[in-house]
Amino acid sequence: MTDALAGRTVVVAGSTSAAGAAVVSALSKAGARVAAVDILEDRVRELAAAHDNVTGYTCNLADMDSVDKLAATVRSELGPVDGLIHLVGGWRGGKGIAGQSDEDWDFLHTGIMTTLRNTSRAFFDDLAESPVGRLAIVSAESVASPTADNAAYAAVKSAAEAWTLAVADGFEKEPEGAVTSAALVFVVKALLDERMRAAQPERKFPGFTHVDVVAEAVLEIFATDAGELNGRRIRLGTSSKAKADEALSGAQR
């Protein structure tokens, strides 16, 4: 797996989130050149300083001009991009359909969908031309079973999934021959990290996926054939590398 990532350049968007930090750490240890991107400058700087091969970038990913400048800078400093792990998001709920506010919709759409749309467009050519190009997002089980209270969140996550699958189709239509790039969706009930456990030590968090499992799954996709991943929705388990491996092997069958 280390060989698959050694010297590869991977952009992690939303890098200072719990999942983002776990993914950055795993990629760094695997030998990748990591572009850790977030809007929080101090936290990006701190994250980059804590790992080898990690360069921090501050960017408003909701602004396309800023993302284009980011892409040009990353290419100049780290080289063409081989991976984009998009972990920008957030959650807002409401009381019933009538309680889905415009403010919450704008927050979710901007944070989840607009940032994905911008980053995937800016880095698409790099990913399509890479021999191991990968785009991955994390989505939610609620997309398949939305509730009235969660309508806005589920709808925006559904749009993000559709966009990612459209990117997968774009990879299929790139230069003739075997597919070398893949866009895919990791599906979880919810994410879990150690701060959540510490805050509620009595809680069991049933069905939650630990951020370390997401990190392990990200490493695995670079060592898995693109043709077996492109356009897939992969349900991640609750814990351990074995669970991540099992999810990916299930997607390959």
Rank of each mutant, 00 (worst) to 15 (best):
S17M: 05
A162H: 14
C59Q: 05
A26Q: 00
H86M: 08
V12T: 10
Y153R: 13
V213W: 09
G93P: 02
V143L: 02
F222G: 06
S240E: 06
Q252T: 07
A152R: 05
D68S: 11
D149M: 14
S181W: 03
E77F: 02
N118L: 02
A72V: 02
A36C: 07
E172Q: 12
G79N: 03
A98M: 08
P175C: 03
R117H: 12
T164D: 03
V143E: 08
M196P: 15
L5R: 11
A62F: 04
V44R: 09
A251L: 08
K29C: 00
G170H: 02
A199F: 11
P80Q: 09
K204Y: 01
L127D: 07
A217F: 04
A166Q: 09
V187G: 09
T180A: 04
I137E: 04
R195L: 05
V67T: 10
A72Q: 10
N230G: 14
V81H: 01
D126F: 01
T2K: 14
E220M: 10
A190P: 00
H109W: 02
L191A: 09
G96N: 10
V54Y: 06
A140Q: 07
S139P: 06
T119W: 00
R117C: 03
R8Q: 09
L219N: 13
A140I: 01
A144I: 00
K204W: 00
V54I: 04
A136D: 09
S130K: 11
P146T: 09
F124Y: 15
